[in-house]
């Protein structure tokens, strides 16, 4: 085991985040940010949404989605910069920015959903 990288951990976040994003996000984004603003779908009332998000299961799901989607981005974007722009020599900086950004986003999501 010695010398093996921590990459499997980040990859597990990347791949579960990617799967979740692929399954959930297109429909969610289409409904919330296109169908509702265009009036194809009635905007849910504020009270209903408060009740929905107030439920612990909803909050847990939202947290999982946001956290994993963030780390999906962090991991994938890190390699996009490495390979797409040939910035591998900046690996320390890039990894810090990508995973750091994902961690901050996860922390903010945890705070917002915890105090909802």
């Amino acid at each position: 085991m010695k010398g093996r990288s921590i990459e499997p951990f980040f990859w597990s976040l990347f791949s579960s985040g990617g799967m979740l994003a692929a399954l959930v996000l297109p429909a969610l984004a289409l409904a919330l940010w296109v169908a509702i603003p265009l009036g194809w779908l009635q905007a849910p009332g504020h009270q209903h949404l408060v009740a929905l998000i107030g439920h612990p299961v909803t909050r847990l799901c939202l947290f999982g989605l946001i956290a994993l989607a963030s780390f999906h981005w962090g991991h994938r974007f890190r390699f996009t910069l490495y390979d797409g722009l040939q910035l591998k020599h900046l690996f320390g900086l890039i990894a810090t920015l990508c995973y750091g950004g994902a961690t901050i986003l996860t922390a903010v999501a945890a705070y917002v959903l915890w105090t909802f």
Binding site: A21, L25, H46, I53, A69
Partner: peptide, 16 residues
């Protein structure tokens, strides 16, 4: 994907 995550979070903040 990360844009969607952020916007979703902002929407939750707005509701709260």
């Amino acid at each position: 994907v990360v844009y969607a995550a952020v916007l979703l979070l902002l929407q939750v903040v707005a509701v709260s």
